[in-house]
Design a protein around this nucleic acid. Structure first.
Lengths: 184, 184
DNA sequence: CTATTGCCTGACCGATCGGTCAGGCATACT
DNA sequence: AGTATGCCTGACCGATCGGTCAGGCAATAG
């Protein structure tokens, strides 16, 4: 009965509040009230506010790293398709975390995961089909970040399948014209 | 000599710091130190921290409203082209402000400008070429927000013309296939 | 000269922040 | 029985937050 469901409650409420008001915009007091426990309890389960943030984002980061591994084994058209599908799926399943990282911290905050920038860069390359054209690179960045923001802001404008719409959009922009495959 | 260049200095430093650490992540003390004046001076020139933010964002909002007016007079292909070109230009010229609004506040903050959401929605419609296809709507949102984020994060990856690349990307995604024009 | 006005400041205020700590209260073990 | 362990808490701490206020210091006006 006195299970450790409190820890999970804290994570859930923190995700909700962080993604709504941002990391700095949410106090430990806010979270404690939402969970229904004391502020000291938060700091019993998590060493600090930063540690809470890390615990929240960590599984999403792990999945991103796993996607990165999967992508490393693929080339050409398969690589881009897997990148788009995998990324859209990941971003949809971890929406609050994406909101958090994308809105609140971005350049600014404390707990940068090591090597995550390199992963993001490889993802961009995969989106661009490893093209050498700088416009393709920009296109990949627009689509990647655009997907994030749309998922964050999407409040269900008509009951369309967001996953399918996003992958369709990505496919429409990224590869369409026949392009000589190059490198890797 | 004792001109009011202090006010402008405050605005410039506030834009710099806000866009780097976010609105809540930047204190009046930080700004005062950067400007080289006292915190009280900030609050002499601006009624509050919020008022400083509003003063900072206001010209960009005015230009966005002006773009909205210009767009209202156009239809069809002209409307979308003007929307893309105008938006890219605006976002490039007001990069710090865009960073601010996009990163720090978004859903959360205080000084929402009235009717700005409607303007953004009309801009999305223009990007979508007023298509009824929900996928076109999603595409427009991806491109619009993607452009914002890319401009924010772009640290000059090779000396390409970012303006031209962005408009090219937008044109590539948005209209390409022949599409029956519908509604004004 | 005095008076007014605009720009600026140090000192201070209450509120809130993240974080610490000693201890309460169960349950489980010996 | 005692005692160890896990979960939780109220009270408190120093730091920092946005904001106020009385006054100083030019320059200009009369």
């Amino acid at each position: 009965m006195t299970r450790n469901h409190t820890r999970e409650d804290i994570l859930a409420e923190a995700a909700r509040l962080f993604s709504r008001a941002g990391f700095k915009g949410t106090s430990l007091h806010d979270i404690a009230v939402a969970v229904g426990c004391s502020k000291a309890t938060l700091l019993y389960h998590f060493a600090s506010k930063d540690a809470l943030l890390v615990a929240l984002v960590e599984p999403a980061v792990q999945e991103l790293l796993a996607l990165d591994d999967r992508l490393a084994a693929l080339v050409g058209e398969d690589a881009r398709t897997a990148a788009v599908d995998g990324f859209v799926d990941l971003v949809l399943r971890y929406r609050p975390q994406v909101t958090l990282v994308y809105d609140s911290l971005q350049l600014t905050e404390i707990p940068r995961f090591p090597g995550i920038d390199a992963v993001a860069e490889r993802l961009v390359r995969a989106f661009a089909g490893h093209s050498a054209d700088p416009v393709d690179d920009i296109a990949a960045r627009v689509v990647l970040s655009g997907i994030c923001t749309v998922v964050i802001e999407h409040a269900d404008s008509g009951g369309i399948d967001l996953r399918k719409a996003l992958t369709t959009v990505a496919e429409r922009l990224l590869p369409s014209q026949p392009r000589p495959r190059q490198e890797s």
